[in-house]
């Protein structure tokens, strides 16, 4: 089954000041598939992820060359509304970062900031998002309790619900389970499998096994370059590139 390209990098270079952190990246992220970005620390995978919704713009002295495309439209241009881009391309971070508010308000926050005032719509959207994040049954009786009282795994799924509430088209996940225990990790991985029915997902992970379990495509980055991208099954059974082979088998990195 062919999946159309949702996002793409075309000859993408990225600089932190004078340091070139990404070099000539060409990568297509297919729609409603999970693309895993792997590679040793400092290889540029998280930098690349943050290029997709221009989170790097928040860091002074950074710049991009080449193009990042969303549905074929270049998004790394000054005239583009970054807030709107980030609504379409949501993000979940390594450490769960719920706001010091109620569970309900955490999920409703983005909607309210976006100017939504219809209380019924907000309520239904919060419930829908919590269901999508696999959290609703666990919190439905305490929606107005503080989100800070949830476990780490629940907090991370709340953050996913918060991202999903804005109905993004793409979800970026930067090591979303690295701070979680195995059971909570398993729930996040199951959730990713569910979410890809409706969302395009790009995930950075340091866990080879996690990349193998959750992704359809795997891209291996090394020293700012994209070394190899292909179906996850091929990357983990017979990678074409020796560097990929050496990395996934733990011979370096």
């Amino acid at each position: 089954m062919q999946h159309s390209v949702k996002m793409a990098a075309v000859d993408l270079d990225f600089y932190y000041g004078r340091f070139k952190a990404l070099e000539s990246i060409n990568l297509e992220i297919p729609e409603r598939r999970v693309t895993a970005l792997i590679g040793p620390s400092g290889c540029g995978k998280s930098t690349f992820l943050r290029c997709l919704n221009r989170m790097n713009d928040l860091i002074a002295g950074t710049r991009t060359e080449g193009a990042v495309l969303l549905d074929g439209v270049k998004v790394n241009v000054p005239s583009l509304d970054v807030v709107e881009l980030r609504r379409k391309v949501g993000m979940v971070f390594q450490k769960p970062n719920p706001f010091p508010k109620t569970i309900f308000e955490n999920v409703a926050y983005g909607l309210r900031v976006g100017g939504v005032t219809d209380r019924n719509y907000i309520s239904s959207q919060v419930e829908k998002s919590l269901i999508a994040a696999g959290l609703f049954t666990e919190v439905k009786d305490r929606l107005h309790d503080s989100a800070l009282g949830l476990s780490g795994g629940q907090q991370q799924r709340l953050c996913i619900a918060r991202a999903v509430a804005l109905e993004p088209e793409v979800l970026l996940m930067d090591e979303p389970a690295s701070a979680l225990d195995p059971i909570a990790t398993q729930k996040i991985e199951e959730l990713i499998a569910e979410l890809k029915r409706n969302y395009t997902i790009a995930i950075v992970t340091h866990s080879m096994q996690q990349a193998a379990r959750v992704s359809d495509l795997t891209a291996f980055f090394y020293m700012g370059k994209l070394v190899e991208v292909g179906p996850t099954e091929a990357i983990f059974t017979r990678p074409a590139n020796q560097q990929t082979e050496d990395y996934v088998t733990g011979r370096f990195g």
Partner: peptide, 8 residues
């Protein structure tokens, strides 16, 4: 949980 060459 080997992969690639190790798995093969």
């Amino acid at each position: 949980q080997p992969v690639a060459l190790d798995l093969r």
